[in-house]
């Protein structure tokens, strides 16, 4: 029945919406936060590496390599967070796009969003 199809699609859209609006952004936030703390570790370490020049220069031989690895890890975490966020936004856009063209599914999506506080 058309009504049933609308309800089924509405539920699928809501799951898509939930993944895009809640789950992926929540994990992305963890990644952004992880990247932030890696950056803070870098700032702290920069000071910790400082020493008199006779011990291998003002920050020593290992600091540059450590900072490079730190930067690589920070980029990995940032890129992962961004991919999660952008994919989440795409899923929300998808749910809304389908909902706009199927009124029954759109109503069901809106009902589930309200019921589950998914805004």
């Amino acid at each position: 029945m058309p009504g049933d199809r609308g309800v089924t699609l509405g539920l699928d859209l809501w799951e898509l919406y939930r993944a895009g609006k809640q789950s992926l952004p929540a994990v992305a936030t963890e990644y952004y936060d992880a990247g932030f703390h890696v950056g803070r570790a870098g700032s702290f370490a920069e000071e910790a590496f400082t020493r008199p020049a006779m011990f291998g220069g003002s920050q020593g031989p290992a600091c540059g390599e450590w900072m490079e690895l730190m930067g690589t890890i920070m980029k990995f975490l940032g890129d992962t967070g961004e991919a999660l966020d952008d994919t989440g936004a795409a899923l929300v856009m998808a749910a809304n796009t389908y909902a706009e063209t199927d009124r029954a599914a759109g109503r069901e999506l809106q009902r589930l969003i309200t019921e589950h506080h998914t805004e």
Binding site: H37, R40, F49
Partner: peptide
């Protein structure tokens, strides 16, 4: 005298603690 300005081992604690937080996140 130059050895009195060696890096303070305790100064690495802040950076280590930050990375422990990241390990907890991941």
């Amino acid at each position: 005298q130059p050895f009195t300005e060696l890096p303070d081992p305790a100064k690495f604690n802040g950076a280590i603690a930050e990375l422990q937080r990241v390990m907890g996140k991941l």
